[in-house]
Simulated scan of single mutants.
Amino acid sequence: MAAYIIRRLIQTALILLGISFVTFILLYLVPADPARQIAGRSATAETVENIREQLGLNLPFYEQYLRYLASLLQGDFGRSYLQKTEVSTLIAARLPASLLLMAGAIACELAFGLAMGIVAALRRGSHTDNALMITSFIGVSAPQFVIGILLLYVFAVKLGWFPIGGYGTFVHLVLPSVTLGFLGAGWYSRMMRSSLIDVLRQDYVRTARATGLSRAKVLFRHAMPNAILPIVAMIGIDIGLFMSGIVVVESVFGWPGIGQLAWQAIQRVDIPIIMGVTLVSACAIVLGNLLADLVTPLIDPRIKLR
């Protein structure tokens, strides 16, 4: 186990290095000029050039990247061009909100998705199965901002059960989590249904039934531990996706997370923030997958980490 974790951590470091290099190239090739963004439209060419020199933007690409990499190895993500604040400070201020929304979204998609998938698999071919799969199709197809606006209109404006937006209490968390969870629940329900149907056909499940075990014990003691393995892998991916790809939901509900910070930085070509958020999100994805790999043998002891 220790050797496996060390090997994966080394792979993680190499992956993050590659991501930092590719992201830095893409930002270097962007036609927008950060120095001009900082100086303003009315600034003179001399002022813009001075800012470019102060930030090191006049250096060749490889020098800029090596300087950034040297700072990164010391834990320094750089300083925001426009906000004049350390990127690590800005990310740390937004991180709790993103982690909270990520946890709420994963809880919602697991609760809805697994329940829908299990019922659909147990009633395969029935009207209930068809209705649940249509619902899951709507969930994976509907744009997030549409779901978010509909939930706001019904439950916040019309019924008044939840606040229209904001952050700080449990009631603020419900609607954004359900919005994100509805999309994930569609994928989880389809995966759960397919996996469970396949497991229920296996010989060991038939043997468990033949021994006289109740339907619930056969399902949760014998079938579910194997059927849920693909779901664990999906959760590992979702950890990273929810850390970086929820800017639409954050904007609809006024949620002060990392996604909103990244979107603001992209609009202003604030390269240090873009780089910082990208690396944090990539790290979350890689570590989420590692966590999923470590949990899988605990669910199914037959799986060995190599």
Rank of each mutant, 00 (worst) to 15 (best):
L122G: 05
F145T: 12
G165S: 15
G276A: 07
Q64S: 00
R36K: 12
R221M: 12
L175G: 07
G168K: 14
L305E: 04
G113P: 07
I91E: 02
Q260W: 13
L114T: 09
A43P: 03
A121D: 03
E109H: 09
Y204T: 00
A223T: 10
V30A: 02
Q54I: 00
A282F: 04
G166A: 10
G184F: 10
A32F: 00
E46W: 09
G78E: 04
G56T: 14
L279I: 13
A262N: 12
F162K: 01
I19G: 06
Q83E: 15
R302M: 05
A43H: 08
W161R: 02
R221H: 15
S42F: 11
G236D: 05
T169R: 11
A156T: 06
G104Q: 08
G254V: 07
A282M: 01
L279Y: 06
L110N: 03
I147G: 08
M102S: 14
S126P: 11
P163E: 06
R8P: 10
L90R: 09
L95G: 07
S88Y: 10
N130I: 13
I237F: 13
G160S: 08
A216N: 14
T211K: 15
G18I: 06
I239M: 07
Q202D: 14
Q11A: 15
A2E: 04
E63T: 02
G259N: 06
A156L: 06
R190W: 03
R79M: 09
L152I: 13
P272N: 11
L261K: 01
M234T: 06
T47Q: 13
L150F: 14
V205S: 08
L305K: 12
A39F: 06
F242C: 12
S98W: 05
A115F: 15
M102W: 05
I285M: 14
I149Q: 08
L159E: 13
L173C: 02
Y167N: 07
P34N: 02
R302C: 07
G75I: 09
Y62M: 11
Y62E: 11
V248H: 05
L114N: 03
T211I: 11
G40T: 01
A142P: 04
Y28S: 15
C283T: 15
L298H: 04
G40N: 00
L14N: 05
L14K: 10
Q54M: 08
L151M: 13
I237T: 13
M116L: 15
F182D: 01
L101Q: 07
G184V: 07
Q260L: 15
G75E: 12
K158V: 10
E250K: 05
